[in-house]
């Protein structure tokens, strides 16, 4: 198992010397940093004019700071602080809401896993709705919903026959079953391999995250993901002020800019603080089991050991950390 490596990694200085999923360690390069600073000064005049549309009317300083912001794993603690403050200011400016954006690090000895009981899922989509609210998706209506519940005929496992847009008077429809699909947090994620700028990577707790401030929007990761789990912000998502969830995380549910990719992050803003993901909390049938894969006494480990489980498209070798099981 790939993620066992991370048990020993020192979480406290995670952001001084960033730890990557592959186990490589990048030490911030002082020379590069100096170069960036100089560029920042030299580029100040040049970027002023162009900044207005791309950064949505932010103040010049924030725009510049955002432009030259480094990749999350390479930022120093103070740089991260500055970035978080910028995010909060931008939310205030754009959405008119005071949000709190934090940076809770992963817990040592934790790798998240998810199991979903197919025989319990009844296709209510409560998880979808909870996710949209928790994760500050655009409400206009946005196509970025992370969870897609597929409706399939009994006796079918061919996803080409699935329908994710079912909308009957009542569910479950007789003769159908339901298969919710979201990011599988693959242990060998093809999306991470695909990204040309390392804007997406696997955190030590197994969550595959996106740095929305680093992604260039090439959408190659969307092409690489076998689960259609990645969604693109084709336009600036809008959220009414009263619907914004103010508890946000840098790698999680903070308001996203236009032109970047996003995906399910197991509610990183909640789960790193010990809470259950919003979808697990919302599921009225208890079909969703979430927990720490490294804890042999966790519910998820019980499911894996005692239930018939399967992974979607496991033949592709992506090693999903999301299992389906039946009673």
């Amino acid at each position: 198992m790939v993620w066992n490596n991370h048990e020993n990694s020192n979480m406290s200085d995670q952001h001084d010397v960033s730890t990557q999923s592959a186990g490589t360690v990048t030490v911030p390069d002082p020379h590069r940093r100096r170069l960036l600073k100089q560029l920042g000064i030299a580029g100040a005049a040049g970027t002023t004019a162009a900044s207005a549309p791309a950064w949505g009317g932010s103040t010049l300083l924030d725009a510049l700071g955002g432009f030259f912001q480094d990749q999350y794993q390479r930022m120093s603690p103070s740089e991260i602080e500055a970035a978080l403050a910028r995010i909060e200011r931008k939310a205030k400016r754009d959405l008119g809401v005071d949000i709190h954006c934090d940076n809770t690090p992963p817990q040592a000895g934790v790798v998240f896993g998810y199991a979903l009981n197919v025989s319990r899922c009844r296709g209510y989509r409560d998880c979808v709705q909870a996710c949209i609210q928790e994760n500050n998706h655009g409400r206009d209506p946005s196509s970025t919903a992370y969870i897609r519940v597929l409706e399939l005929d009994h006796g079918q496992m061919n996803l080409e026959q699935a329908d994710q847009y079912y909308d009957p008077e009542t569910v479950p429809v007789p003769g159908k079953y339901y298969l919710p699909v979201q990011c599988m947090q693959c242990a060998d994620p093809p999306c991470v391999k695909a990204c040309p700028v390392e804007a997406t990577w696997m955190e030590p707790d197994g969550i595959v995250v996106v740095d929305y401030d680093w992604c260039i929007g090439c959408r190659y990761c969307m092409t690489a993901c076998p689960y259609w789990a990645r969604h693109f912000n084709w336009k600036q998502p809008t959220i009414p002020a009263d619907q914004v969830n103010p508890d946000t995380h840098y790698l999680g549910n903070r308001p996203r800019p236009v032109g970047v990719v996003e995906k399910c992050h197991f509610c990183i803003q909640r789960t790193r603080k010990g809470r259950l993901p919003a979808c697990a909390e919302a599921c009225p049938t208890g079909a969703r089991v979430f927990g720490n894969l490294l804890d042999p006494h966790s519910e998820i480990r019980y499911v894996l050991a005692n239930k018939p489980v399967f992974q979607l498209k496991s033949e592709l070798g992506t090693e999903p950390k999301f299992w389906y099981f039946t009673d």
Binding site: Y124, D126, V128, Q129, S143, R148, P168, E169
Partner: peptide, 9 residues
């Protein structure tokens, strides 16, 4: 059984 939440956009 009950009405599901709205389908995705």
């Amino acid at each position: 059984p009950r009405k599901p939440q709205p389908p995705p956009a």
